[in-house]
Design a protein around this nucleic acid. Structure first.
Length: 420
DNA sequence: TCTCCGATTAGAC
DNA sequence: CTAACGGTCTAATCGGAGA
């Protein structure tokens, strides 16, 4: 039986979330910026039409944008995560198997269902009606073709937001894939597009029909799988369970350059708290802790210094206080006066489930620290992140990221709920 | 010569 | 007015070290 894998993808997701609470902006060109108000990460159709590129640094397109009356907003992740959860739970009702692939995308396995066309349009309608968010639905026999079908649904208004690749004849498939750039394929990015072009592979059809042993030899196993998927042979399965993280990173660019160790240490203590909280949430212990700090790589006129250091922990842990002692110590060792630090962060790795405890030969296992961590997590879950935190002095305004254009937390803070 | 492991690369979003 | 290019994560591959 032909598999019917749907990929449901929200249109201009962050921008659409912002518009829900600002219907007056329905036709205003909008962009949403990354952390630190650095780059454009979501664009309304109007903003795309003006020529603002995905990922473009805001300072680069600011002038053009403002000439065209573009509204730029800082990203409001609390809002996007909340709305994403609503979308995903709606989609989960359509099939026994779904995979939340990203904040705005979900694979839905509709294999064997009758009235598929109706279901596809119903998914779109229901998400729109229940959340106000527009989505497109692409269907194909593999995840890669579902992604491509979604791209087609987004690009061609005539599809009315739904496109099923499985409905095409062989001739139609060949003609369609011959018209799409190979760079649109899932897993083929900028670099690979260039290298493929050197082999005369420019369209999706070129890739689908390329000589497989050559492709394998030149581009590796990943590309061969991509080709098989384009031929309709499933190589990438739907994942039922989200696997635990193998490493947890928390890092930020600073709103202004940091020149004092105490300020950087304050930032690192907050990153440590966040990372350990995530580690505890997945019931893990980390055996390796890394710290890094970076100067601004875009300012080659300034002296550059990008040190990092790692400590293997004698006893794997998820205790913020224990981890923080190592982090603070490493920060002192790495720090050099005279540099303008732009970014810093920590990495937790060598992660194992807490159930796998390496007992210490000399010390009995203590539980008092884990009780403290549970209490901290409980308070933060109830009253908001940062209510209780590990601190080295609370000088946080020395490093906080720029976020000058953030909308209110409409859906997660009572005070921000708009009046009716 | 083989194996292991850390570093690098490329990708997604 | 500052200073002005994100953050997390994975898999594959590369290349050097040590067996």
């Amino acid at each position: 039986m032909t598999r019917q894998i749907a990929l449901v993808d929200c249109n201009n997701f962050y921008v659409s979330c912002e518009r829900l609470f600002r219907p007056d902006l329905t036709h205003t060109p909008i962009v949403v910026l990354s952390n630190n108000d650095g780059c454009v990460v979501s664009r309304s159709n109007e903003a795309k039409a003006i020529g603002i590129r995905m990922g473009q640094p805001w300072f680069e397109c600011k002038q053009l944008a403002e000439e065209h009356g573009v509204l730029a907003l800082s990203s409001n992740y609390a809002l996007y995560v909340d709305l994403s959860n609503r979308v995903m739970s709606i989609l989960a009702d359509f099939a026994p198997r779904t995979e939340v692939y990203s904040i705005d995308e979900c694979f839905v396995d509709l294999t064997g269902m009758s009235k598929l066309r109706d279901i596809n349009y119903l998914m779109r309608e229901r998400v729109l009606q229940w959340t106000g968010l527009p989505v497109c639905v692409g269907v194909g026999p593999t995840k890669t073709l579902a992604k491509l079908a979604n791209h087609i649904a987004k690009k061609h208004p005539r599809s009315r937001g739904v496109f099923n690749y499985n409905d095409l004849t062989d001739e139609q498939q060949t003609r369609l894939l011959g018209q799409i750039d190979v760079g649109e394929v899932w897993g083929v990015g900028r670099k690979l597009t260039k290298r493929l072009a050197k082999h005369g592979i420019n369209t999706v059809q070129d890739l689908r029909t390329a000589h497989t042993p050559t492709l394998r030899a030149e581009f590796g196993v990943v590309m061969e799988k991509t080709q098989r998927e384009l031929q309709g042979v499933a190589c990438i399965e739907l994942e039922d369970h989200v696997p635990d993280k193998q490493q947890i990173i928390c890092s930020r660019s600073f709103g202004k350059p940091v020149t004092e160790l105490a300020v950087l240490q304050d930032a690192l203590s907050v990153f440590t708290a966040t990372a350990c909280e995530k580690l505890r949430a997945q019931n893990g212990h980390a055996a390796l802790v890394q710290v890094f700090m970076l100067t601004n790589r875009f300012r080659q006129d300034l002296p550059q210094y990008n040190p990092s250091m790692a400590v293997p922990l004698p006893m794997p842990t998820n205790d913020s206080l224990v981890v923080n002692r190592w982090v603070q110590h490493m920060a002192e060792l790495l720090w050099r006066d005279g540099y303008k630090y732009k970014k810093a962060g920590i990495v937790l790795s060598d992660i194992t489930p807490v159930s796998v405890v390496q007992a210490d030969l000399l010390e009995p296992v203590s539980t008092s620290d884990t009780k403290l961590m549970l209490a901290i997590d409980g308070l933060n879950a109830r009253f908001g992140r940062g209510t209780v935190k590990v601190s080295t002095g609370g000088m946080s305004d020395g490093w906080a990221m720029r976020q000058e254009r953030k909308s209110p937390n409409y859906t997660t803070e009572w005070d921000a709920v708009p009046a009716v």
